[in-house]
Amino acid sequence: MKKMDDTTRQNLGMVSKMIYGNWMQQCTYAFAELAMADVLKEAPKTHADLSRELRLNGAYLKQFLRCVDELGYVSFNKQTKTYALTDVGAILGSDHPYSKRAEARLNGAEYRYMPWGHLVSILKNGNGKEYSPTVENGTLDFLQDKPQLLEVFHEAMFKIWKTEDAKIVEAFDFKPFKKVMDIGGGKGSFLLSMLEQNNHLEGVVFDLATTFDEGNLSEENQLAGDFFNEVPDVADLYTMKNVIHNWPENKTKQIVNNVRKAMLSTNGIDTPIGDKRMLIIENILPDDGTGDISNWMSLNFMILVDGQERNREEYKELGEECGFHLEKIYATDTNRQIIEYSLL
Results as ranks from 00 to 15, higher is better:
V152M: 15
E340F: 10
G58L: 06
S218R: 11
K78L: 06
I338C: 03
G203S: 11
G21C: 13
I122W: 00
K241D: 02
K129T: 02
S94Y: 12
G93I: 04
Q197R: 11
Y20L: 14
A90R: 07
R101V: 06
L191N: 13
L304G: 02
E70T: 01
R105I: 03
A32V: 09
D270A: 10
E320H: 06
E309K: 03
I273R: 15
K2R: 15
E282T: 09
I338M: 07
K129D: 15
E313G: 06
M263P: 13
W247S: 03
F177H: 07
K81L: 09
K251F: 13
P176L: 03
R336W: 07
T163M: 12
F212H: 08
E151F: 03
V205D: 03
N267F: 06
E170R: 14
V120M: 04
P232F: 09
M302E: 05
Y341Q: 12
G58I: 09
L50T: 02
N57Y: 07
H154E: 15
T334I: 12
L237I: 04
A32I: 03
R52D: 10
H47I: 07
L264H: 07
M240H: 08
M18C: 07
Q79N: 10
L71E: 01
P115Q: 09
P133N: 09
T266G: 11
L12P: 14
W161Y: 12
Q79G: 05
N267E: 15
V39Y: 14
D333T: 09
D38S: 08
T134P: 09
E321W: 04
S193F: 04
K159P: 02
A331M: 05
A90M: 08
T8V: 15
W116S: 01
A209N: 06
E313V: 02
V120C: 01
R9M: 13
K261H: 14
Q254K: 11
H245G: 02
A331E: 14
F228K: 10
V15C: 13
E136S: 08
K187Q: 10
R112D: 07
L140V: 13
G186N: 09
L299C: 06
A262H: 07
H154T: 12
R310A: 08
K253D: 11
D38I: 11
L318P: 00
L85A: 08
I91R: 05
D233S: 02
T46E: 13
I339G: 01
